[in-house]
């Protein structure tokens, strides 16, 4: 089935969809890449505090070129700023916030998500890759609500939402909601429930491009 031009959501529109589901007063950790865009789309009137696991609560915007501080970085090692009211702390305290259930929402990218909410986002299992995990496993195990933001399919067209992940897992039964360029999908006890379809995307098309059965929101 061919897609019409202008079908689906852009990366920015995906970030905007996720941003709408972040409540006022939330403590949020944003993963590296597309998840970082979410901060630009928080609806007016909501105050959100960003946590970065290398030891800062109250992360501000990326630093303007020329005023970088080499000792003020985010988890992706980008130079960032701190907002008034921010705090610094060591790594064990930072992961106490994560594992202790103090962070409300984490937005992550993924290689694969399963119908039960398993996520694979740290390794493709390729023996030539140097394995690296960072804080991903702690985040999915500890943060109350996990949102995944990702293209619906890989560059070669394979579904990224599958019955069972084939890549090494980051965590099992942890994802709550998935935002793709085609749809917003809830991971529920009953299975994957489509909450919203992007413009030009039909349920049939979505199902054909998804590796697990989908339910339509009643």
């Amino acid at each position: 089935m061919e897609l019409k031009e202008n079908s689906g959501w852009s990366i920015n529109e995906m970030a905007q969809k996720a941003a709408q589901d972040i409540h006022d007063g939330a403590y949020v950790n944003l993963g590296i890449g597309i998840p970082e865009l979410v901060a630009d789309y928080i609806p007016e009137g909501r105050e959100v505090i960003y946590h970065t696991e290398n030891g800062l609560l109250g992360m501000g915007k990326v630093t303007e070129k020329g005023s970088e501080d080499y000792e003020l970085v985010n988890a992706g090692k980008k130079y960032v700023t701190a907002i008034p009211g921010a705090s610094y702390f060591h790594h064990a305290d930072s992961f106490a916030m994560i594992r202790g259930g103090h962070i409300d929402i984490c937005v992550l990218g993924a290689y694969q998500v399963s119908e039960e909410g398993d996520i694979a986002n740290w390794s493709t299992g390729d023996p030539n890759d140097v394995p690296a995990v960072g804080g991903a496993m702690d985040l999915v195990a500890g943060v109350k609500t996990i949102y995944v933001i990702t293209q619906h399919c890989t560059k070669s067209g394979e579904p990224k939402i599958v019955r069972q992940c084939t890549y090494p897992l980051t965590g099992k039964k942890v994802v709550n909601k998935i935002y793709t360029n085609y749809a917003v999908i809830d991971v529920t006890e009953d299975g994957l429930v489509v909450k919203e379809l992007a413009p030009g995307i039909t349920f049939e098309f979505l199902q054909q491009n998804t590796g697990a059965p989908l339910l339509l929101k009643q």
Binding site: H90, H91, A92, F95, G142
Partner: peptide
């Protein structure tokens, strides 16, 4: 995992020989 690394070091300094964590359960690590 990064949080496990931090906590293993923290435990080492605090006289705690080992601890249980939810991070990495059901994964190759």
């Amino acid at each position: 995992p990064q949080g496990t690394l931090a906590e293993r070091i923290r435990a080492g300094g605090a006289g705690i020989p080992a601890f249980y964590t939810p991070a990495s359960v059901n994964t190759p690590l």
